[in-house]
Design a protein around this nucleic acid. Structure first.
Lengths: 199, 199
DNA sequence: ATAATAACTGCACTCATTGCCAAAATGGAA
DNA sequence: TTCCATTTTGGCAATGAGTGCAGTTATTAT
């Protein structure tokens, strides 16, 4: 990752490939854009793309790994005196908060990921890493192993909430992601209290 | 789908392909088994497999479409006087109830799906149909459109519960899927009531 | 026997992905 | 300047999934 002082310099970068790829995806669609197209548009070899991204499906995710570290820190900084579900809920909201002006590229990224079947499928593998971050936080608070039922469930439920909010957001870009997430959490709590009241 | 009275008879069946494929998957692994291998083992053309399954990834799912109809009926028959979340929870439990003796092939199927990265990814597309069944049920009860936030969230949360239970079940085959699902639901309700008590 | 029908399957092609390795580019050393 | 170590690039070949096309094959109906 660090810039080598010796050796042949890199001809391109993750960001450059990503940018060109997104332009082509927007023009012709994800499936109709071949890696050859992208390589040719960049003036590099097709083989070189694989030195920057593990697969075509990984291109839209770009920097997700780094983003995950921020999420971990964010959760760790959450006050321990609020209920677990509230802490995770707040963490998810904070994680997905960003200025409305900076959204356009982010909207495009998420739209591509959520609307392209091949990417919907591939993304599960990324989501698993995200869930793991939550499972580890929950496990710490519950003092159990991260692989046990409760931490895993918390990760899955948080993902359920986030995915639902994102999908609505794409259909209704005026609504803020934040309020959709909060609305989802309210619904979840309301359903649970119905059950509690009935039993 | 109906047996044609005229024309060349089918040389194989979904079940036959599925069975042979599973045997080879078990022997060499999913990725290492090519469609040519499966076709050859069956003595049919590779091309013919595509007349029965849309893709290699679809083979492990076999009859899921038909299963989904049963799930729809099951939810529709759920009493309307119990809370929505309880009804969905009970529906999911019932849907996944099956005799412990009949499990072995089902375990193998789920293990393959849940442990093979390519299948984990592909399965999202199947899960989406499953979630849709729940979303439609929830929408009917809530008297809103199935595409709105609440029904969609209910589908996602139910899937979160089911996936968590299945994953635990694979690691701990002695535990019944039913009790894992119920344990998950109890955890979810407990977390929600913590939040309710704190606010 | 012939026709109609429905399924099977070989052929050729596209495209993602991977292993292998020679070529290219650069800073530093001799 | 020339040579060397280092690092990246990218061509080549091979594998395997997926797809359109067209000819072949097995049955039933006339």
């Amino acid at each position: 990752m660090k810039r080598a002082s010796v050796g042949r310099p890199e001809v391109t970068s993750h960001a450059q490939i990503e940018q060109t790829a997104f332009r082509l995806f927007a023009e012709r669609g994800f499936a109709a854009t071949t890696l050859d197209d992208i390589a040719q548009a960049l003036g590099i070899g097709r083989r070189t793309i694989f030195r920057y991204f593990a697969s075509k499906n990984d291109i839209p995710w770009g920097q997700f790994d780094r983003t995950l570290d921020g999420f971990r820190d964010l959760l760790a900084a959450m006050p321990a005196d609020i209920p677990l579900l509230a802490a995770v809920g707040r963490g998810v909201v904070e994680f997905n908060r960003f200025p409305a002006d900076a959204s356009p590229p982010h909207i495009e990224r998420m739209r591509l990921i959520l609307e392209t079947p091949a990417l919907q499928a591939h993304s599960v593998l990324r989501y698993a890493e995200w869930r793991q971050v939550i499972a580890e936080y929950a496990a710490r608070r519950l003092e159990v192993e991260p692989t046990t039922l409760e931490p895993q469930l918390m990760g899955q439920v948080a993902l359920a909430l986030a995915l639902t909010a994102y999908e609505r957001w794409l259909h209704e870009p005026d609504a803020s992601l934040t309020s959709l997430l909060e609305e989802g959490m309210r619904s979840l709590l309301a359903w649970a209290s119905e059950v509690a009241a009935a039993s």
